[in-house]
Design a protein around this nucleic acid. Structure first.
Lengths: 143, 143
DNA sequence: ATTCGTGCAAACCCTTTGCAAAGAG
DNA sequence: CTCTTTGCAAAGGGTTTGCACGAAT
């Protein structure tokens, strides 16, 4: 049962990756994971739904949402909260942050080359840091 | 040119502040502004609605939402996008950023004492920076 | 009279949920 | 066979909108 390598990872590789994260591998989950991991990109649930069902009807809306939430909980993907109207998901890669075009909703990455953590303020008592997000909101420089 | 420090909260002062931002002062808007500017706090639209109508019925839900959007557009308040389920509003004060408790939804400020802008990456061609938000997501240190 | 602001309810959109059927181990 | 996952549709919750009424110029 060796499947085609469509986007750089074989089905088996993805299935193993899911199991490594404590996620039962199913057809739907593998295909959703394939989309999320395929490129360095940010996708909304709606985009995942659209991409995963190219021409066919493989995954329902509910499953997409539930799966994305599951993936995020298991640490396979990261939720990006920058747009008040929807959540973006991206593969969990190295430290990088985002430009967010407030007019178009477009999201772009940038890497940090400075020691971010050293500059962080003191974390409140009894709290541990889950993550640090920097969002640079931009817009087209108006003429 | 008006001095706009947010501690005095007489109706006249607030009305003047609104006008300074190009906002027609009405009773409802003044009362909403009073809540937003009263303390250094973050409030959701729902909380504004609740606070502004203490015991009476002064402002409708639609007006709260429309007014908050107007205030944000006019630069009187800032939207804080950290919670996927709702938008927070805060007075536009000096540079500070946020701790966000991912479990409780609680939002806390912290000031930056380092020159943030100098560390920023190159802004994409033709883009201008609207703002920079740093969100430190925290949770109660595991029991 | 014309323009702007407000209120109400309904509409909207993204997201979650309840429950029955299909799939995994 | 038992437990988990999926699908469908419906509900949910925050936010926006359409339209009539009221206030201001």
């Amino acid at each position: 049962m060796r499947k085609m390598n469509l986007h750089g990872k074989t089905t088996t590789e993805i299935a193993d990756l899911l199991r490594d994260h404590g996620i039962t591998a199913t057809l739907q989950r593998v295909e959703i994971a394939r989309i999320l991991l395929s490129k360095k990109q940010h996708v909304s649930a709606e985009q995942v739904l659209e991409k995963v069902n190219k021409g066919r009807s493989l995954v329902s809306k509910a499953t997409v949402y539930n799966t994305l939430r599951l993936f995020a909980a298991k640490g396979l993907v990261k939720e990006v909260i920058v747009d008040p109207t929807k959540v973006f998901y991206e593969p969990k890669t190295n430290d990088h942050h985002h430009f967010f075009n407030v007019d178009t909703g477009e999201l772009t990455d940038f890497d940090v080359d400075f020691p971010l953590v050293d500059n962080l303020p003191h974390t409140p008592e009894g709290m541990s840091v889950v993550g640090v997000d920097i969002t640079v909101r931009v817009r087209a420089a108006h003429a």
